[in-house]
Amino acid sequence: MTTESILELAVCIVADRPAAAAARQRAMQAVSQYPGFISWRAVGSCEKADMLADLVEWETLDAAKSAGERVRRDPDFAPYMAAISAVMLMQHFAVEQQI
Protein backbone atom coordinates (compact mmCIF):
# COMPACT_ATOMS: atom_id res chain seq x y z
CA MET A 1 0.00 0.00 0.00
CA THR A 2 1.32 3.45 -0.86
CA THR A 3 0.18 6.84 0.31
CA GLU A 4 0.33 10.24 -1.29
CA SER A 5 1.65 11.96 1.83
CA ILE A 6 5.24 13.07 2.38
CA LEU A 7 7.39 12.12 5.35
CA GLU A 8 9.93 14.66 6.57
CA LEU A 9 12.79 13.21 8.61
CA ALA A 10 15.03 15.47 10.68
CA VAL A 11 17.83 14.01 12.80
CA CYS A 12 19.46 16.51 15.14
CA ILE A 13 22.08 16.82 17.85
CA VAL A 14 21.16 18.83 20.97
CA ALA A 15 23.27 20.00 23.89
CA ASP A 16 20.51 19.75 26.50
CA ARG A 17 18.00 17.00 25.73
CA PRO A 18 15.39 17.94 28.40
CA ALA A 19 15.43 21.59 27.30
CA ALA A 20 15.21 20.57 23.65
CA ALA A 21 12.29 18.25 24.42
CA ALA A 22 10.40 21.08 26.13
CA ALA A 23 11.08 23.44 23.23
CA ARG A 24 10.06 20.73 20.78
CA GLN A 25 6.68 20.40 22.48
CA ARG A 26 5.99 24.09 21.81
CA ALA A 27 7.15 23.71 18.20
CA MET A 28 4.89 20.70 17.72
CA GLN A 29 1.86 22.65 18.89
CA ALA A 30 2.64 25.47 16.45
CA VAL A 31 3.33 23.22 13.46
CA SER A 32 0.18 21.18 14.08
CA GLN A 33 -1.76 24.24 12.89
CA TYR A 34 0.14 24.62 9.61
CA PRO A 35 -1.67 23.86 6.34
CA GLY A 36 -1.10 20.29 5.18
CA PHE A 37 0.09 18.98 8.55
CA ILE A 38 -0.87 15.37 9.30
CA SER A 39 1.28 14.17 12.21
CA TRP A 40 4.59 14.51 14.06
CA ARG A 41 6.41 11.67 15.77
CA ALA A 42 9.13 12.96 18.09
CA VAL A 43 11.71 10.32 19.00
CA GLY A 44 14.97 10.15 20.89
CA SER A 45 17.95 7.93 20.23
CA CYS A 46 18.37 4.95 22.54
CA GLU A 47 22.14 4.92 21.99
CA LYS A 48 23.05 8.62 21.80
CA ALA A 49 21.73 10.90 24.55
CA ASP A 50 22.23 14.00 22.46
CA MET A 51 20.36 12.80 19.34
CA LEU A 52 16.71 13.47 18.55
CA ALA A 53 14.69 12.75 15.43
CA ASP A 54 11.42 14.11 14.15
CA LEU A 55 9.22 12.35 11.64
CA VAL A 56 6.60 14.77 10.35
CA GLU A 57 3.93 13.75 7.86
CA TRP A 58 2.55 16.28 5.37
CA GLU A 59 -0.25 16.08 2.83
CA THR A 60 2.07 17.21 0.01
CA LEU A 61 5.69 18.09 -0.67
CA ASP A 62 4.62 21.70 -1.24
CA ALA A 63 3.04 21.80 2.23
CA ALA A 64 6.25 20.42 3.74
CA LYS A 65 8.43 22.94 1.94
CA SER A 66 6.10 25.80 2.84
CA ALA A 67 6.24 24.75 6.50
CA GLY A 68 10.04 24.65 6.29
CA GLU A 69 10.05 28.30 5.31
CA ARG A 70 7.44 29.25 7.89
CA VAL A 71 9.25 27.71 10.87
CA ARG A 72 12.19 30.04 10.25
CA ARG A 73 9.91 32.99 11.12
CA ASP A 74 7.67 31.34 13.73
CA PRO A 75 8.48 32.58 17.26
CA ASP A 76 6.97 29.37 18.71
CA PHE A 77 9.53 27.33 16.76
CA ALA A 78 12.55 29.53 17.56
CA PRO A 79 13.38 27.94 20.96
CA TYR A 80 13.55 24.49 19.37
CA MET A 81 15.79 25.73 16.58
CA ALA A 82 18.04 27.35 19.19
CA ALA A 83 18.25 24.06 21.11
CA ILE A 84 19.61 22.22 18.07
CA SER A 85 23.41 22.11 17.88
CA ALA A 86 23.60 20.35 14.52
CA VAL A 87 21.28 18.91 11.90
CA MET A 88 22.54 15.52 10.79
CA LEU A 89 19.78 14.90 8.24
CA MET A 90 16.82 16.87 6.94
CA GLN A 91 15.08 15.18 4.04
CA HIS A 92 11.64 14.54 2.52
CA PHE A 93 10.53 11.04 1.57
CA ALA A 94 7.64 9.57 -0.40
CA VAL A 95 6.21 6.30 0.86
CA GLU A 96 6.86 3.54 -1.68
CA GLN A 97 5.68 0.53 0.30
CA GLN A 98 3.93 -0.06 3.58
CA ILE A 99 2.73 -3.15 5.45
Rank of each mutant, 00 (worst) to 15 (best):
1 M>T: 11
1 M>R: 14
2 T>V: 13
2 T>P: 01
4 E>G: 08
4 E>F: 05
4 E>M: 07
4 E>L: 10
5 S>C: 00
7 L>W: 13
8 E>Y: 01
11 V>P: 03
11 V>D: 10
12 C>A: 15
13 I>T: 12
14 V>H: 01
14 V>T: 05
17 R>M: 09
17 R>K: 12
18 P>T: 04
18 P>F: 01
18 P>C: 04
19 A>F: 03
20 A>I: 04
21 A>Y: 03
22 A>V: 06
23 A>P: 02
23 A>F: 02
26 R>H: 07
28 M>G: 14
30 A>L: 11
30 A>F: 07
31 V>E: 09
31 V>S: 08
32 S>L: 05
34 Y>P: 06
34 Y>V: 03
35 P>W: 05
35 P>Q: 11
36 G>L: 00
37 F>C: 01
39 S>M: 06
39 S>I: 05
40 W>Q: 12
40 W>F: 11
41 R>Q: 14
43 V>P: 04
43 V>Y: 04
43 V>Q: 14
45 S>T: 09
45 S>Y: 05
45 S>K: 13
46 C>V: 07
46 C>A: 09
47 E>W: 06
49 A>G: 08
50 D>R: 07
51 M>H: 13
51 M>R: 15
52 L>Y: 02
53 A>C: 15
55 L>Q: 12
58 W>G: 03
59 E>L: 01
61 L>W: 04
62 D>K: 12
63 A>H: 12
63 A>V: 02
64 A>E: 04
65 K>W: 10
65 K>C: 08
66 S>L: 02
66 S>M: 00
66 S>G: 06
68 G>K: 03
68 G>F: 02
71 V>C: 06
71 V>D: 09
72 R>K: 15
73 R>T: 10
73 R>A: 11
74 D>I: 03
74 D>N: 07
75 P>L: 04
75 P>H: 06
76 D>M: 05
78 A>T: 13
79 P>S: 06
79 P>E: 00
80 Y>F: 15
81 M>R: 13
82 A>V: 03
82 A>W: 03
82 A>T: 08
84 I>S: 08
85 S>I: 01
85 S>L: 10
85 S>E: 15
86 A>D: 15
86 A>M: 11
89 L>Y: 11
89 L>F: 10
92 H>S: 01
93 F>L: 08
94 A>I: 00
95 V>H: 14
95 V>E: 15
97 Q>V: 05
97 Q>D: 07
97 Q>S: 14
98 Q>N: 10
99 I>L: 14
